[in-house]
Design a protein around this nucleic acid. Structure first.
Lengths: 169, 169
DNA sequence: GACAAACTGTTTCCTTTTAAACAATTTAAC
DNA sequence: GTTAAATTGTTTAAAAGGAAACAGTTTGTC
């Protein structure tokens, strides 16, 4: 009896299904209908791995830069609104803002008319940091999305913004 | 002296910069050039919050379903390749696969010709789970992306897939 | 064949993120 | 006015995720 050779069948199968590449796996799932949710997750993770590589060694992380830029463009922004906008939970935002405040990149201002809330403003150092790193982020973005031509990039941006905006409130 | 009223200036500012909505903050950042990286992150987070809501109470999470579907479409898939494809680290994949194996939704098969590696296959229960939940995921997807018409949806999927695929290897 | 190097996963430990409970302030109802 | 409910953040405890070190297996070199 050849009972010892049970696994041989699998060894045979191996030759059939052989080396599966990441691209083939992606394609197999994307071949199904309605898989933008999957695609957007994979794309986002891939893009942020790249962005992290581009910017490692910087004084600020991607998330910190985003927070500073939001505040710079919207002075007086409340902390909770910022958290909700960026889809991070309030406790996480508390820690992030604490760290940035300690580094004197932003200020907490408690307004007279609502002492529960916290309004955020950049310090001069914070503004300088945004100014310094904005070009680096733009360059990284161009590099990472080099597989798309200008039209495709704009189209993608438009569609993403429509999706994100719609789901926002 | 009115030194006590220092904060009054801020109270005045409040009226000017007033209530900032999430949409306005998104718009302020998207108004800049080269912000697809930001948009894709916000969109992805928003979409997965929705998807989570649609599917909470299910027997399997979004990630678990994705793993099972990948294995179902690519039987014999190696664990490390799957991890790299889905952009999770190997230790995380070990935990996920352990849990799914304990629930008897998949099998680990160690091939004779390479006893280092682990090939993954669905059990009948695992296959049944995929079959059961696939329609629910499709329905959730349709609902979540209802802001896009068919053309826009297909275009988005195409662009995301191009970006993800390009960055994959 | 024996030893070094590469491959493939796993374990351990630490950081980050989240959920749940808490505290302070304001608004609303009576 | 007082008390109940809503708003806005913070703290604490638990879960998830990742980096570094580890272990077993295979391949290549002498």
């Amino acid at each position: 009896m050849a009972t010892k050779n049970v696994q041989t069948d699998n060894a045979l199968d191996d030759e059939v299904r052989a080396p599966v590449t990441k691209q083939q796996i992606i394609d197999s799932l994307c071949g199904l209908e309605k898989t933008a949710g999957f695609s957007i997750r994979i794309a986002e993770l891939a893009i942020f791995e790249q962005l992290y590589q581009h910017l490692k060694g910087s004084e600020i992380s991607i998330g910190e830069f985003t927070i500073l830029r939001c505040i710079g463009l919207n002075p007086g922004l409340r902390q909770g609104v910022l958290a909700d906008t960026l889809h991070v939970k309030w406790p996480s935002m508390t820690k992030l803002i604490n760290a940035l405040e300690l580094r004197r990149l932003l200020k907490r201002v408690v307004p007279l008319n609502n002492r529960r809330s916290v309004e955020l403003e950049l310090t001069d150092e914070g503004q300088a940091m945004v100014t310094k790193y904005a070009p680096k982020f733009r360059a990284a973005e161009s590099d990472i999305f080099s597989m798309l031509d200008d039209d495709e990039y704009r189209q993608l941006e438009k569609l993403l913004r429509k999706a994100a905006g719609w789901l926002q409130e």
